[in-house]
Design a binder for these strands. Structure first.
Length: 200
DNA sequence: CTTTGGATCGTCT
DNA sequence: GACGATCCAAAGG
């Protein structure tokens, strides 16, 4: 498991989003999911929180790539993004789903009503609940080179897992984004198609 | 299996 | 004052 350089995120969100499939979102050292679903949001994109310019909520989107943008939605849920593109472009990739990789027991405690392990993190609100991500993670660096140990609170990282097959082996499906009202036709939702044997 | 509607509050108009 | 980058329980097929 190795960290991802900031240059990976300093590209267009539509390019970063599919490349994040198969990568690992880690909280601390013992809790993580393999990313299976992402969505790209651009600066000049009516569906994006950044479309109408910088506000208190979306300020992180206009900062450096590789940082964490967390927002609260529907009065109940948190969603987590990674900022992409050149600084102040207002781009980000929403992490919409993943499969438990480490710390499944913790995820079950965080989502006691979840019937199947494969659904512990199978949605943008579900995965933040499973991983314990909330507003206090907003603005944290997800590709810092500083090592994480047990004394690092609220650490959140995107990482590459050597044991996962190369991107060339992955089947990626692109569809329209969900849950939005504007700019609905862009095929900027990306799903990792797993072979039945890997679906758990 | 699919469809429907309720929950719940920060943010921006 | 309205609505949202959602989830889940309940009801119907």
């Amino acid at each position: 498991m190795r960290s991802i350089p900031r240059s990976f995120f300093a590209r267009n969100a539509v390019d970063v989003a599919p490349d994040l499939l198969g990568k690992v979102l880690m909280i601390g050292t013992d809790l993580g999911i393999r990313i299976t679903e992402t969505e790209a949001y651009l600066g000049d994109d009516e569906a994006s929180h950044s479309f109408r310019g910088r506000t208190k909520r979306n300020a992180v989107m206009f900062g450096k790539p590789g940082f964490c943008y967390v927002y609260f939605i529907y009065g109940m849920y948190w969603c987590v993004n990674v900022v992409t593109g050149p600084e102040s472009s207002g781009e980000a990739v929403l992490v919409r789903g993943g499969l438990p990789l480490r710390g499944i027991e913790t995820m079950r405690l965080n989502r006691p009503k979840c019937a199947h392990d494969r659904d512990l993190a199978s949605g943008p609100g579900k995965l933040t609940m499973a991983l314990g991500i909330n507003g206090s993670f907003n603005g944290l660096d997800m590709c810092a080179s500083t090592p994480i140990d047990a004394s690092t609170p609220n650490s959140i990282r995107l990482m590459t897992d050597n044991t996962i097959g190369s991107k060339q082996d992955q089947r990626i499906l692109a569809t329209k984004r969900v849950g939005i009202r504007l700019n609905v036709d862009r095929p900027w939702r990306f799903l990792l198609q797993l072979p039945p044997s890997e679906k758990k």
